[in-house]
């Protein structure tokens, strides 16, 4: 088990290296930040001095290895906008983003599992059709649009919840709903299709043949087997959700990683962009490792190693 985790961690290194390289090159293409940092009225001499000081006149490879060297020590450079190191700035925002993403996932699971099971056990019925149509609708709504609609209805018209910002549970409700709805739809469809397939398996017939109650057959024998595909998709969805969180955070002025990243891109605060992309990449990789370990715990047939 320990060697498996160590092996997986080692596999992440080339992936991370690739991501760092791509982000470095993107920033290089976008152009130098010096004119932005110094403002419109800087003299050419000032710009040249600054460029020299930042090493922007070095050949690409030299710049790349210098950059790599400092990244390895956890130094992504300083944010010119906040005048502080970029990495701690990014790490500070993680709890807010995770709160939003975990909230959205939990909401999605709480809705999706009962709904998917319900639809699967009444396949072809009214409930099943209603659930299918609703999930298509929910999946089709972009979350930024849903977010704006939710703000209009619940914050502006009904004035039940705050428009945006953070600080209380009430602030969390609308962004979580905006972000979680699409995921809920996705997982509902998955739970339904997994359960439909599982309920036709021989071991379900065996369970019924033993005279077990319908509830036990569905929630113990069938749902346990649906857990494997549902977990894998849920964790993949979590990665997608981190992407969705970027936009949702902007809509709701939620002080998370997404808001920071979007602002950093528009301000060309490249140290922050690089640090944020790196951190998100690490999170996504960690999630895939967690999902594999969870499988191992649920399904003993998957032998890791």
């Amino acid at each position: 088990m320990g060697t498996y985790i160590a092996g997986r961690l080692a596999q992440m290194i080339p992936t991370l290296l690739l991501i760092i390289t791509i982000v470095f090159l993107l920033v290089y293409i976008v152009g130098d930040p010096v004119s932005l940092m110094l403002g419109e009225h800087a003299t050419p001499e000032q710009v040249a001095t600054m460029r020299e000081a930042m090493g922007l006149n070095d050949p690409l490879l030299v710049q790349y290895f210098n950059y790599l060297g400092s990244v390895l020590t956890g130094d992504f450079g300083d944010s010119y906008r906040y005048n502080q190191a970029a990495l701690p700035l990014v790490l500070d925002r993680i709890p807010a983003t995770l709160t939003l993403a975990i909230g959205a996932i939990l909401l999605a699971l709480v809705i999706a599992i009962p709904l998917g099971v319900w639809a699967a056990t009444r396949r072809g019925g009214v409930v099943d059709s209603a659930v299918s149509s609703l999930s298509v609708l929910a999946k089709a709504m972009p979350n930024f649009w849903l977010g704006i609609m939710l703000i209009l209805l619940f914050a502006v018209v009904l004035q039940w919840l705050p428009v945006s910002g953070s600080g209380s549970w009430a602030h969390l409700v609308l962004p979580v709903v905006a972000l979680g709805t699409g995921t809920a739809a996705e997982i509902t469809r998955l739970v339904r299709s997994s359960m439909v397939e599982i309920l036709s398996q021989d071991y379900i017939r065996t369970a019924r043949g033993k005279g077990l109650r319908q509830r036990v057959v569905v929630y113990k024998h069938a749902l346990l087997n649906a857990f494997v595909p549902v977990t894998s998709i849920t964790i993949l969805q979590f990665s997608t959700l981190l992407g969705g969180a970027l936009i949702t955070e902007v809509v709701f002025s939620w002080p998370g990683l997404g808001q920071l990243l979007v602002n950093a891109v528009s301000m060309r605060d490249m140290a922050v962009v690089q640090a944020a992309v790196f951190v998100i990449a690490v999170m996504v990789l960690a999630l895939s490792l967690i999902s594999d370990l969870l499988f191992k715990a649920v399904d003993r047939r998957i032998s890791l190693g």
């Binding site: 021989d202 071991y203 065996t206 369970a207 399904d299």
Partner: peptide, 8 residues
Amino acid sequence: LTSLNPLL
């Protein structure tokens, strides 16, 4: 082969 629940 398929009549027993694989996870229990």
